[in-house]
Simulated assay, not measured.
Amino acid sequence: MAKLTLGFGVLLIILSLIGYIGTGSTHPTALIPGGLGILFIFFGVMANSESLKKRMLWMHISVTLALLGFLSMIPALVDLVRLVRGVYFPYPAAVEEKSVMGLLCLLYVLVCVRSFINARRARVS
């Protein structure tokens, strides 16, 4: 799971760079997903430990942050549906980037929760 966290962090950094360059490098807020990506790379490095307790701690911290990231992007997902239906937004690239970030966070949470359940089942049996 630590490698997944590292990969997720890299994806967020790539997303932020695409958003920043795609907007003509004029909107520094497009780099916000990159900040989250750096945190996930840190969490992935910390979770790459021999200690089960440390690994569990850092993975639970990362999935909690990803859940908060998804929950905070729900309005952007609603705006994406509105954008597809033809509603005008002054910065459609921002709506798209936030929506991708929200979907990536949701995917990460789902994969981590599935892994946590499988790990618990493996410990019990």
Rank of each mutant, 00 (worst) to 15 (best):
I21R: 01
E50H: 12
L103P: 06
M101G: 07
L104G: 02
K98D: 06
L52Y: 15
K54I: 11
V87A: 07
P33W: 08
L103C: 04
L57D: 01
A47Y: 08
G22A: 04
R55K: 13
P33T: 01
L36P: 03
K3R: 09
R120M: 15
V63P: 02
V63R: 11
M73H: 15
P90M: 07
G24Y: 09
L106P: 15
A76N: 09
G102Y: 15
T5S: 09
R121T: 01
K3A: 09
A76M: 10
D79M: 09
A76H: 10
L104M: 12
M1F: 14
A93K: 02
A66S: 09
L83V: 07
A30P: 02
L52K: 14
F40W: 10
K98F: 13
N48V: 00
L17H: 03
M73Q: 10
M101I: 03
G24S: 05
T26I: 12
M56K: 14
G37D: 00
V111K: 08
S72Q: 13
V84Q: 06
V113K: 02
N48Y: 06
P75A: 05
L12Q: 06
R121D: 08
R85T: 05
M56R: 12
L11F: 14
A30H: 10
I74N: 07
T29C: 05
A93G: 07
A122L: 11
G34P: 08
F116I: 05
C112N: 11
F70D: 00
M73G: 07
S125W: 10
R120N: 10
S115F: 15
R85V: 06
S62V: 02
A66T: 02
A93R: 03
V78M: 15
V113P: 10
I14W: 14
S51C: 12
L110K: 00
I38G: 07
H60A: 05
I38D: 04
E97H: 09
P28V: 01
A66R: 02
R120K: 12
V124W: 10
L71M: 13
F43P: 01
I13E: 02
L12N: 07
S125E: 13
M73T: 06
S99Y: 09
L106M: 14
S62K: 00
Y108A: 04
H27M: 07
V78D: 09
I18T: 05
K3E: 05
T29M: 13
L106E: 04
L67C: 09
A93D: 08
F42E: 00
A47G: 04
S62F: 12
L57V: 08
K98N: 14
F42K: 00
S62Y: 09
R114L: 13
L77V: 04
R55G: 11
V84Y: 15
L31Y: 13
F89D: 02
S115P: 11
G35V: 03
Y88Q: 02
M46R: 12
P33V: 00
R55W: 04
V124F: 11
L67W: 11
S62D: 03
L4V: 11
S99R: 03
L17P: 05
S16H: 05
Y20V: 00
P90Q: 04
A76Y: 14
E96H: 13
T29H: 12
F8W: 14
A2V: 03
C105A: 08
H60R: 13
M56T: 06
E96G: 13
